[in-house]
Amino acid sequence: MPYRVDARGLSCPQPVVMTKKALEAMGLGAKSKALRGSEVSDASGPLEAIDVLVDNRTAMENVSRFARHSGYDADVETVKEGDDCYIVRICVRRRAQHGRP
């Protein structure tokens, strides 16, 4: 089940700020200090997905650009759902977890 950030109705830069905070909260942020909790242990491997919901193209472009270019090594995929919703799915590979069993 992917994490979900609902940024519908918000305009730039807030969707990007929320995405950044969510990635950091998941321990996936470029600057994250500690990696803790919410490890993925199923067959899908060490990949984590986060869905960002936005309702305008500008925010969709901004969130995807941010995910691709901010050191997250992310696969980005966008889905248009109806008139008023874009889902930006960001798949991030968890980094090697140093100092953990």
Partner: peptide
């Protein structure tokens, strides 16, 4: 409210 909607509760 925004923080809450940043569902980390997965």
């Amino acid at each position: 409210p925004n923080q809450q909607r940043t569902a980390g509760e997965a």
